[in-house]
Amino acid sequence: MKKLSMPYVKGSLRLKNHVVMAPMTRSRALNNLPNEWMATYYKQRSGAGLIVTEGTSPSPEGLGYPRIPGIFSEAQVEGWKAVTKGVHEGGSRIFLQLMHTGRIAHVANLPEGYQPVGLSSSKAVGEIFTDSAGMQDYSTPVALDEQGLTRVISDFVQAAQNAIRAGFDGVELHGANGYLLEQSLNPHVNNRTDNYGGSIRNRSRLTLEIAEKIADAIGPEKVGLRISPYSTLSDMPAYEEEEVHQTYAYLSEELNRLGIAYIHISDSPSIPRKTHQAIRSVFSNTLIYCNGLTAETAEAKLQAGSADLVAFGRSFLANPDFMRRIEKNAPLNEVDYQTLYTQGMSGYTDYPVLEELSQLV
């Protein structure tokens, strides 16, 4: 049997296979509330050993995109319960990804009275979609003072506790793709001169304090972190390679000290081998690798030991029965890119599974 399909046990992670469904924004949470469409979507994909949900905001000011869910209200907690129930019935584990978009936001996507915030008032270059006015330039964020950062940390902790009440097995902090936690790591975006800016240690402080306080609240075995070293997505200016390397080596070492369940690496060719090796050498728990994997390349990474688990995004998006297709070596559905972020079930819960395709032949 291929390693992909074999059970995985390491620390507190006990999964039916080595495959993770990666987090993917789908913009179906009308009024930022989880709903029946979402419950169906995730249950359909419970062939994965672990599902990581789409990015979910810990607070109203973190809802940078239209129709992304939150986990800060009782109605949202109740809505997520149907999702976790369905996934557990399918025999999978599910972590909620906590995503605060920071400056990657537009005020039109936030509830009335809220403004995008950031580590500084540095405005991101680029545009973002809004339901009310179409494409718009990113809004200028309000720079968080230390009281504001304390509030952000508290929001993350409360959101993690809410996630456990909603039935999730844990939470993944989104420290990648140019959102708030990665903004704090980047010296060109985070130009602070207080305890949260300047040195690598200080720029890592926000992520580590959030991770530590959540670990204290719900248990370190229920916490993961997604990272994207060297990425320039969402107007993340590149900085000196050795400093990037040292940043992620330090962050991984400190996360190992906290004993969190996993680090989830958004892989790219820009990450040098020495950075991969540094993360592996200092972090003893689970490493998940994601981005551009096929069943064959994922199996090779598992066999080589460079990854403990492998994550797939688009493959699960278009193939609810992705695991069955791997086992049968069956062809995959193509992604309909026109319906990735639209409102409705089309291109969301209606991708065909193998049985339906065979009936069409």
Rank of each mutant, 00 (worst) to 15 (best):
K3I: 14
P7G: 08
V9T: 14
R14W: 01
L15W: 04
A22E: 03
M24Q: 06
N32G: 05
N35F: 07
E36C: 08
T40L: 05
Y41K: 04
I51F: 02
E54K: 01
P58T: 14
S59C: 07
I68Q: 13
F72A: 10
S73Q: 04
E74I: 06
Q76E: 15
T84E: 08
K85I: 08
G86N: 05
E89Y: 01
G90V: 12
I94R: 09
Q97E: 11
T101R: 02
A105N: 01
V107P: 02
L110Y: 04
Y114I: 10
Y114D: 00
Q115S: 10
P116Q: 07
V117S: 06
L119I: 10
L119M: 15
S122R: 15
G134Q: 05
M135G: 01
M135S: 13
E146Q: 11
G148M: 02
G148C: 09
I153D: 08
D155S: 08
F156D: 11
Q158E: 10
Q158C: 00
N162R: 07
I164T: 04
R165K: 15
F168H: 08
G170R: 06
V171W: 00
H174I: 09
A176R: 01
Y179S: 10
Y179K: 00
E182T: 01
Q183T: 07
S184L: 03
H188F: 11
R192C: 10
I200S: 04
R201W: 00
N202E: 11
I210V: 12
E212P: 00
I214C: 08
G219M: 08
G224P: 13
L225D: 00
L225Q: 06
S228H: 03
P229Q: 02
S231K: 02
T232P: 04
P237T: 10
Y239N: 06
E242T: 15
L251G: 02
E253T: 13
E254K: 15
E254M: 11
R257S: 12
A261Q: 14
I271W: 04
I271C: 08
K274Q: 13
L293G: 03
Q303W: 00
G305T: 14
A307N: 14
L309F: 08
F312R: 05
R314D: 05
R325H: 08
E327G: 03
K328L: 15
N329F: 09
L332V: 06
Q338K: 15
G347A: 11
Y348N: 12
P352N: 05
E356L: 07
